[in-house]
Simulated assay, not measured.
Amino acid sequence: MILTFAHTKGGVGKSTVAWHIAHAMKMIGKVEIVDIDFNQTLHYINMIAGKPFTVHQPRTVAELYELISRTTHDVTLIMDIGGFDSDLNRAAIRHSDHVVIPIAPDKVTEVLGFRTFDAILSELDTVDTKFHILFNNIHASTRNLDKFKENVPGERFTILKSAIRSRKIYYSTMGDGESVFSSIGNVTARKEIEELRDELIGK
Results as ranks from 00 to 15, higher is better:
122 S>Y: 08
185 G>E: 07
60 T>Q: 01
153 P>S: 06
94 R>N: 03
134 L>I: 10
60 T>A: 07
6 A>V: 12
178 E>M: 05
201 I>A: 05
107 K>G: 01
63 E>H: 06
130 K>V: 07
150 E>G: 09
133 I>Y: 00
128 D>V: 02
171 Y>K: 02
89 N>M: 11
36 I>C: 15
86 S>V: 09
114 F>C: 08
109 T>K: 11
139 H>L: 03
55 V>Y: 10
114 F>P: 07
158 T>G: 04
160 L>E: 02
185 G>C: 07
182 S>K: 08
175 G>R: 08
45 I>A: 00
118 D>G: 11
115 R>Q: 07
194 E>A: 05
193 I>H: 03
203 K>P: 03
179 S>D: 04
68 I>F: 15
137 N>V: 00
166 S>T: 04
34 V>T: 14
63 E>L: 11
6 A>P: 14
136 N>F: 00
182 S>Y: 04
45 I>R: 12
168 K>G: 06
203 K>W: 05
29 G>H: 09
45 I>S: 00
148 F>M: 05
148 F>T: 00
127 V>H: 03
1 M>C: 13
131 F>K: 10
81 I>G: 13
126 T>W: 04
157 F>L: 03
141 S>Q: 01
140 A>H: 02
183 S>A: 14
186 N>K: 02
192 E>W: 03
88 L>D: 10
8 T>L: 14
96 S>L: 05
70 R>P: 02
169 I>Y: 02
88 L>V: 14
77 L>T: 11
13 G>A: 09
27 M>E: 04
186 N>D: 08
181 F>P: 04
139 H>G: 03
150 E>A: 12
43 H>T: 14
185 G>K: 08
175 G>K: 09
90 R>G: 05
100 V>T: 06
2 I>N: 15
8 T>S: 08
48 I>H: 04
162 S>A: 14
139 H>Q: 03
2 I>L: 13
119 A>S: 12
14 K>L: 13
157 F>K: 00
201 I>M: 10
9 K>F: 07
75 V>R: 01
84 F>P: 06
69 S>D: 12
150 E>M: 13
161 K>V: 02
128 D>S: 10
82 G>S: 14
35 D>V: 15
200 L>D: 03
142 T>C: 01
5 F>R: 13
21 I>P: 00
195 E>A: 14
51 K>N: 08
38 F>E: 10
46 N>T: 11
48 I>A: 09
25 M>E: 04
